[in-house]
Design a protein around this nucleic acid. Structure first.
Lengths: 227, 227
DNA sequence: TTGACAATCGTACAGTGTACGAGTACTGTG
DNA sequence: CACAGTACTCGTACACTGTACGATTGTCAA
């Protein structure tokens, strides 16, 4: 970046923090976060391990960095008078981003990994609620309820097999393993899963989301009966 | 060390799968899951590493085992005509168990770690819903909404500092680090957190839980207008 | 030319999970 | 009693991890 010209002895596209993080993101998406190692990352970038440490403090820094990239993909709630629609849209966007990068939830759990992208996201959600008329206290609770549903539901979904085509076989194996008469309701639950498999979006996430949003609307109205 | 005081056909052995898992659970609670290693576990038990592998297939088996122990701590919904109260109680119990063992959520995220304790827990929740009059389909959605809130909310709570006494300082540090005018709503949010710190149980978990339960009740009534 | 700085990387070390097989202790059977 | 078989323990080794430290090179300003 300090060299604008590109004379002949210019080495291959040099390293940068951004390139390192982007490669790490791609590697985590491809091979899973648990197999993301500094050595593999270096190899992917065509360099050696210790070169990475010039741009990155340590592996934790890498993890925090790629988490920021993921959160940056989330669509922030627009400046919309319809707070419910705005929050709904942003929540679904977050859900999709977390599903695209299933490892992100695990990374998020390590404490105090709060970068600017995450701050911006949090702040925009809170702003949306406050401008919708929620008190600071109610916005606090609403925020946690929403965030809880997004991460919690996605976590369950993310810990299931990825490819839809694999699901029937896995469910069948599962049903064979467990004793059907011991867990009848699980069997039924699995059958519903199988039946829903045909649909495009099964809408389970939106179901819980709307449960919360509708509940919040009722709270909000109670708080501000005059409008 | 091995005293044949036990006259039963099996001689008393110092190690056992249960002892291994229980030690692992204690170690994870004490030092955090990321510092739980097979070597430390062996040392804690007064043996050598490879001896563990007689009782345990691999480390993944250990993780699955201690997760089962945690889930076993959850109070199952009682056979109660009041399904809402029953589910509420069980959900709170799950929340508490997961807070007692904050690493458990991370362990749960690895796919297909489903043992008998988890099956029993799932089945009892589903049974409670079905007996409350929910259709198989509605129970399916309700189950995921509930489970999502439990894990999601707890995940957020668990990724925060543990000791309540530490919170004010951490929040203060945090507020210093971020630019106050850039994220005004986060600042406000933190202030609510600080203000709520005095209360015994702040009830945020129950707030979202009741949002869902009330919403479910409305769904259920719609499904069964006659009963 | 000299000195400063940015960037790359070789080596080394402590730590991890676990495969393999040797060793030991105790069992039931002759 | 002896002996074979099983249940259990563990030493060694290997591949792999993150990263501390310092040497090395390339580029620039003075």
């Amino acid at each position: 970046m300090t060299r604008p010209a590109d004379p002949s002895p210019r080495p291959r596209t040099s390293l940068s923090r951004d390139r390192v993080l982007r490669a790490a993101l791609a590697l985590a998406d491809r091979d899973g976060i648990e197999s993301l190692s500094m050595r593999k990352l270096a190899e992917e970038l065509g360099t050696k391990v210790m070169s990475l440490y010039y741009y990155v403090a340590n592996k934790d820094d890498v993890l925090g960095g790629i988490l920021e990239l993921v959160i940056g993909e989330i669509e922030l709630p627009p400046e919309n008078p319809d707070w419910k629609a705005a929050l709904r849209r942003s929540a679904i966007s977050a859900h999709e981003a977390l599903l695209r990068h299933r490892w992100a939830l695990g990374v998020m759990m390590s404490p105090s990994r709060v970068g600017p992208a995450r701050l911006r996201y949090m702040d925009s959600l809170l702003r949306c609620l406050r401008e919708a008329g929620f008190s600071a206290y109610a916005a606090h609770r609403a925020y946690h309820a929403l965030e809880g549903h997004i991460t919690g539901f996605t976590l369950w979904q993310a810990s299931l097999p990825i490819r839809k085509a694999d699901v029937p076989n896995l469910v069948a194996n599962f049903l064979e393993r467990i004793s059907v008469d011991k867990y009848p309701y699980i069997v039924e639950h699995m059958q519903v899963h199988l039946a829903l498999l045909g649909q495009e979006g099964e809408g389970d996430f939106e179901f819980g989301l709307d449960l919360i949003l509708d509940g919040l609307e009722r709270i909000r109205v109670l708080e501000q009966p005059s409008g």
